[in-house]
Design a protein around this nucleic acid. Structure first.
Length: 397
RNA sequence: GCUGAGGUGGCGGAGCGGUCAAUCGCAACAGACUGUAAAUCUGUCGCCCUUGUGGCUACGGGGGUUCGAAUCCCUCCCUCAGCACCA
């Protein structure tokens, strides 16, 4: 009994250390620590900017869950202070100062999402505002002494910009110092992050050393590409958020590039690698359908996932109407088609509505409407207005 | 502060007195294709209508010059870069 549990744990550790992992420093040390039975403090930094958690971010969180399941302590460091500075890893975003109440509000929302992956009762939440705002200039100067300008410039992100003679603010050099100091403050044994975080994570080691602490191990997870294969980013519109509605989530997963299916399975589902292997060798469409089901079920439960699957098949494969359409109640018994489209919010303007009709994208019931002056009679039992492939509305009078 | 560059449609970025509702790219949307998508191809992509060599509103704000301005002038606001050497 005891020995089987041990094997089980060893398997878990093996899985933890290999699946979806880009790099671990120092892997040998971490493996030993994991097997020693010691309870590790595992850190992940969270930006309290109120963003939605997407599947890419969830990769690290799922890893945290694995640590949690092995009995380790997950420490989430909320960047209440750092949010005011801005992480240079993500150069484009200019962050506004967040008020404390705003941070709180964002975090409440964030925790709801985190709860889908982590056991929040066991998580330790810390806000780096508590210690970073107390550092004085002398301490900062000392910290800064641990790094050279050249080291900073080694960082890909800075290097490129430096070579292109683009501006690098001194403030940005400070960011890794702050993140590194967080590790000192919470006495981290391990810190997680994506490959884009490697530099910041390493800074933690340097600074812990400076403070006479044992250096944390660094756990770098692979980055998950967005549905189109590019970096998952809200501005690309290729993001799947874990708070997406089941139908949406299922549909978005179905839109994932075929080449990425295996990676999505590995990074976003709990299926064993063996199971995944068996699924992926089959028909790619079926594999993806399974993927969509697994992911949707993970965040919304199996029942909702199955409903989403049914919805998807009905609408996109059999091209039938979805079972739950929003309803628009018309005040008039008959309406011009253009007015109807605008009134039911299926198009932003009358020009757009006309265009859609001209392009053949509008149907009432099964019938395509090609005349923008067509008067539609609205029966009391209702009719279905379809605009484009996926927008439906039930119209009643 | 000084010097320079610049503010144009969802974004990037042309245009520099008329032919500009504004090239082009991306994103988006519709159609075709398909296992969903992607890719590809076709089309659309300010608003409005009685769809026209139509009307209206637009190129940071305001004012002016002109028959006519996104394009010239004035002014205000905002953004960015440089202000050690070298070049």
């Amino acid at each position: 009994m005891k020995s089987s549990k041990r094997t089980n744990n060893e398997e878990k550790i093996e899985n933890l250390l290999s699946r979806g992992v880009a790099e671990i420093i120092d892997r040998e040390h971490l493996e030993k620590a994991l097997k020693s039975g010691k309870r590790l403090r595992v850190k992940l930094g969270i930006d309290p900017t109120g963003q939605k958690i997407h599947l890419g971010r969830a990769v690290a969180l799922r890893k945290l869950r694995e640590f949690q399941d092995l009995g380790h302590k997950v420490v989430l460091v909320i960047g209440g202070f750092t949010a005011q500075i801005g992480d240079p890893s993500d150069k484009l975003s200019k962050r506004p100062m967040l008020s404390e109440t705003q941070v709180k509000k964002n975090m409440a929302d964030y925790k709801r999402q985190l709860g889908k992956i982590l056991d929040l009762r066991k998580v330790e939440f810390r806000n780096n505002n508590d210690w970073l705002r107390r550092l004085n200039f002398k301490e900062i100067a000392n910290l800064a002494e641990s790094f050279s300008v050249l080291q900073m410039l080694e960082r890909r992100n800075f290097k490129d910009r430096f070579e292109r003679h683009e501006e690098i603010s001194l403030r940005e050099f400070l960011y890794p110092l702050m993140q590194g100091y967080d590790s000192v403050a919470i006495k981290a044994d391990v810190e997680l992050g994506g490959t884009d975080q490697l530099f910041n994570l390493m800074a933690g080691r340097t600074i812990q050393k400076y403070y006479g602490q044992k250096e944390q191990d660094i756990f770098v997870n692979e980055m998950l590409e967005g549905t189109d294969g590019r970096k998952m980013s809200t501005s690309w519109g290729n993001v799947i958020n874990i708070s997406d509605e089941p139908n949406d989530m299922y549909g978005k997963v179905m839109a994932v590039d075929d080449k990425l299916v295996l990676k999505y399975f590995l990074l976003c589902t709990d299926l064993s690698e063996k199971e995944i292997e068996n699924i992926v060798v089959g028909n790619p469409r079926d594999a993806k359908a399974r993927l969509a089901l697994e992911i949707t079920a993970f965040y919304h439960g199996l029942e909702a996932a199955k409903a989403a699957e049914g919805h998807f098949n009905r609408v996109f494969r059999e091209k039938e109407f979805p079972e739950d359409m929003e309803t628009f109640k018309s005040a008039l018994p008959k309406m011009n088609i253009v007015d109807l489209i605008v009134a039911s919010e299926m198009a932003a303007s009358r020009s757009e509505a006309k265009r859609l009709i001209e392009q053949g994208g509008v149907s009432i019931g099964e019938e395509r409407i090609d005349d923008p002056y067509r008067i539609i009679e609205i029966p009391t039992e209702g009719i279905v207005l379809q605009v484009g492939k996926r927008k439906f509305r039930k119209i009643t009078s």
